[in-house]
């Protein structure tokens, strides 16, 4: 697929979304501009603000600062942080913590209208401390998937929490829709999507053994950095099986508005999946 084709797919998907998804489920609304007497501390560009009083060389400071998002040139009181810098750090960590420790809302799954199943993990704490349980399903949940989803599709796509509920709620659906659109453009049949609560990356091996698609695709939230809770990852594998080498997985990460936007990512993933189907391979075995 060349660039023009991709653009066309994206345009079509965008068009489709505007009609089908207004308002888009789980999509974070654009933050409103604060009224004049207020300010949004978290919205300030760290690269362009300097809080050192009377620096020796302000111009050079700002020039070098523009090369990094590190919190430099933030000033001090005694040996401690200025209040704004302290609060900004707290705000950015809050975003990350909320992304990890809040669950994907039931409302999000219900509005999307897809099946929800769960791994062996019972709650968030167990999920975070027992990665082994986050890759397995009990027989009851496996049966639910079997009953509800199409068997042996060419491509099975599903959603899991990963380490950021914010990323799932913000970017999973748009990425999914663009991906399906892209695959349909390639005449590739897609199976029934579902949401796997408390699911980690290797859960795709178990899912693959239940539904036996050629390619399994999972969209899940990445471990958040400070102030970046929205980043989604996509893992894919051809004929995934439990215990297969990690090198057989293909990953596309950094899916969010500051990285690869969801719609663009979905189209790109569709191309990669098509290559997997053609080459019957994934991960390191996949030729570029």
């Amino acid at each position: 697929m060349n660039t023009d084709d991709i653009k066309k797919v994206i345009e079509e998907v965008m068009k489709g979304m505007r009609v089908a998804d207004a308002p888009s489920i789980g999509k974070a609304p654009e933050p409103p501009a604060p009224p004049e007497e207020m300010r949004d501390l978290a919205a300030l560009d760290i690269r362009q603000t300097l809080h050192v009083p009377d620096p020796v060389n302000r111009d050079a400071y700002l020039k070098y600062k523009s090369a990094t998002v590190a919190r430099v040139g933030i000033g001090r009181t005694g040996s401690r942080y200025l209040t704004d810098a302290y609060l900004r750090f707290r705000a950015d960590h809050a975003v990350a913590q909320d992304a990890v420790f809040r669950d994907v809302s039931e409302e999000f799954v219900r509005q999307w209208g897809i099946l929800e199943v769960q791994t062996l993990c019972e709650d968030k704490v167990q999920y975070l401390t027992r990665p082994d349980l986050g890759r397995m399903l009990n027989s009851e949940n496996a049966e639910k998937i079997k009953q509800h989803c199409q068997q042996k599709p060419a491509v099975q796509i599903y959603i899991a929490d990963g380490l950021s509920s914010t990323a799932v709620e913000t970017n999973a659906k748009d990425t999914f829709l663009a991906l399906v659109q892209g695959l349909e453009g390639h005449n590739v049949k897609v199976g029934t999507p579902f949401f796997l609560r408390f699911g980690r990356v290797p859960s795709m091996d178990a899912v693959s053994e239940i539904l036996q698609p050629e390619v399994t695709v999972v969209l899940l939230g990445e471990r958040p950095g400070l102030a970046t809770g929205e980043s989604l990852s996509c893992y894919m594998a051809y004929h995934a099986t439990v215990g297969m080498p990690e090198a057989r997985r293909t990953v596309i990460s950094n899916i969010h508005k500051g990285g690869t936007p969801a719609v663009e990512a979905g189209a790109h993933i569709a191309d990669v999946v098509k290559k997997m189907l053609e080459q019957k391979a994934s991960g390191l075995d996949l030729k570029k």
């Binding site: 990094t68 590190a70 919190r71 001090r76 040996s79 401690r80 810098a85 750090f89 958040p224």
Partner: peptide
């Protein structure tokens, strides 16, 4: 120490530069 405890590459937090003088003091 990293700038204000925020390691922008490794995506974790440790002590910030300010902590050095604070702890020594």
């Amino acid at each position: 120490c990293v700038p204000q405890g925020d390691d922008i590459m490794l995506n974790y937090q440790c002590l910030g530069y300010h902590e050095a003088a604070t702890l020594r003091g």
